[in-house]
Design a protein around this nucleic acid. Structure first.
Ligand SMILES: [Mn+2]
Ligand SMILES: [Mn+2]
Ligand SMILES: [Zn+2]
Ligand SMILES: [Zn+2]
Lengths: 137, 137
DNA sequence: ATCAAAATGAGAATCTTTTTCATCTGAGTT
DNA sequence: AACTCAGATGAAAAAGATTCTCATTTTGAT
């Protein structure tokens, strides 16, 4: 992420924007909440406001730089849009998150949308379960 | 829904519980938020607290009487568990909601969970798009 | 009718996210 | 390098959904 990339997205290259993007790149966690990003920023000695983190994440999402997900625990999580679309499988015990993409499902979804008269814009699929390690203890 | 049904679920047969269930049965909207249910109750002349509506809906969910969904606009919606599991397709313009069930997808999900080492407990699939009538105007 | 346990209503509290607003900064212009 | 100002920021307040607290009421069994 460079100043030029931000300008391309119509955003000024400001310190908070560069740093938020860096934090996501550093991959502390693959999926980070706004609070996670904020804390990482503070820990790194940066002086940003939480409101700015929310604003910047929303702008990055609008610009297609990151994806937002709702894992079901009441807050949004974000991840760099590396590798494009995929879905998630979550452990309800330990919070572990795995990713997958299934072309059969992707295609059926398109068909279902078409049959229902919709022009599909997006979709979200979450599988919840108990992961291997949680099951064996 | 009778007092007996509630007792079977380990819940005392109270007025708020009976009335909340009735509201859902009356099918004002197929998918109602806690606030929706609360307003319907007030309109019907009942004197209940919003906190009680939230409590009762959560208890009904735990008892398997109703299902809770997260359509993505920041609040939970509930529906009677008639007909069992199904998924949803939503219009991002007008809020219209359609329902569907696809055995191919259901089966692929089970396989994905198994391959990832998870014992699946639940899943949620939301397709977002623009409905026919919103597209033609 | 009596009584303990469970449930309720009102309002406070919590949690996440957004808004407001005075101040500051990025990046063209002189 | 100084000048300008639209756009960006931080702090705090506000908003919106949901949960918690607690004094009071109701239920269901005796
Ligand atoms: Mn992911
Ligand atoms: Mn439904
Ligand atoms: Zn686990
Ligand atoms: Zn529509």
């Amino acid at each position: 992420m460079t100043s030029t990339d931000l300008k391309k997205a119509g955003l000024k290259a400001t310190m908070p924007r560069l740093r938020v993007f860096q934090i996501l790149e550093e991959n502390h966690k693959r999926h980070m909440s706004a609070e996670d990003v904020y804390k990482a920023l503070i820990d790194s000695g940066e002086d940003v406001g939480l409101a700015t983190v929310y604003r910047v994440l929303t702008q990055f999402e609008a610009a297609g730089l990151i994806a937002r997900h709702h894992f079901g625990d009441g807050h949004s999580v974000f991840e760099l849009d590396h590798g494009g679309h995929h879905d998630h499988i979550l452990c309800v015990k330990c919070g572990r998150v795995d990713e997958f993409i299934d072309e059969t499902i992707e295609q059926r979804q398109r068909e279902i949308a078409r049959n229902a008269g919709y022009e599909m814009t997006d979709h979200a699929l979450y599988i919840y379960g108990i992961c291997n390690s949680c099951r064996n203890k």
